[in-house]
Simulated assay, not measured.
Amino acid sequence: MRRNTRVAAYAVCVRDGQVLLARWLKADGTPEWTLPGGGMEHGEDPYDTVHREVREETGHDVEITALLGVDSVRLRSPRRFGRHVDHHAVRLVYEARVTGGELRFETGGSTDMAAWHDLDAVAALTRVGLVDAGLGLWRDRPPAGRLALPR
């Protein structure tokens, strides 16, 4: 079984009771909302990753105000030709405040839309688990930077 680890950094941007989310399409074409952010490039600091990814996916510039914590998840999934992948995602989650730029959609990237959503409407969205984990870190601010979520 092929194994891979991906380290990524994401931003939780909340203002006026709304959270900024980006939408990406799963391999089967199903859209899901996620936190803006993504994979670190080799040699890139995660702090810089958040700035770059938020700008690419939403058009906004941000100021990072806190490191909320780390979300780690392991997924085993089937791939083509009967192969399987054991994927370990390590996701650094930052709190960020929008300081500039204008909301726009990414073109030619991993997302196709960005939008502000009311916090109380997030539960009704088709979303990845990272959204709930990030909002949980933002809301609860656990001292160790880790939520006690069942996986």
Rank of each mutant, 00 (worst) to 15 (best):
M1H: 13
R2E: 10
N4M: 07
V7M: 11
A8M: 10
A9M: 08
A9W: 05
A9E: 06
A11Y: 10
A11M: 05
V12W: 03
V12P: 01
V12H: 07
R15Y: 04
R15P: 07
D16E: 14
V19A: 11
V19K: 00
L20S: 06
L20G: 03
L21Q: 00
A22Y: 08
R23P: 04
W24M: 06
W24V: 00
L25D: 03
G29L: 09
T30C: 09
T30N: 06
T30D: 09
P31R: 12
W33Q: 05
G37P: 12
G39I: 12
G39F: 04
M40W: 08
E41P: 00
H42T: 14
H42Y: 14
G43W: 09
D45E: 14
Y47M: 15
V50L: 06
H51V: 12
E53V: 02
E56G: 00
T58A: 04
G59D: 10
I64W: 03
L67E: 12
G69Q: 12
V70Y: 08
V70H: 04
D71T: 02
R74A: 14
R76V: 15
P78G: 08
R79W: 04
R79L: 08
R83L: 13
H84C: 07
H84Y: 15
V85G: 00
V85Q: 12
D86L: 11
H88N: 11
A89M: 15
A89G: 15
V90K: 11
R91N: 09
L92F: 09
L92R: 06
A96M: 10
A96N: 05
R97K: 06
V98S: 04
G100C: 01
G100H: 02
R104N: 01
F105Q: 12
G109L: 07
S110I: 13
T111G: 00
T111Y: 01
D112P: 00
M113K: 13
A114R: 01
A114C: 06
A114T: 03
A115Q: 10
L119D: 07
L119W: 06
D120N: 14
D120R: 11
A121C: 01
A121P: 00
A124F: 04
L125G: 04
V128P: 00
G129K: 11
G129P: 02
D132Y: 06
A133C: 12
A133Y: 05
L135E: 01
W138Y: 13
R139Y: 04
D140W: 04
D140T: 02
A144Y: 07
R146P: 02
A148P: 00
A148L: 09
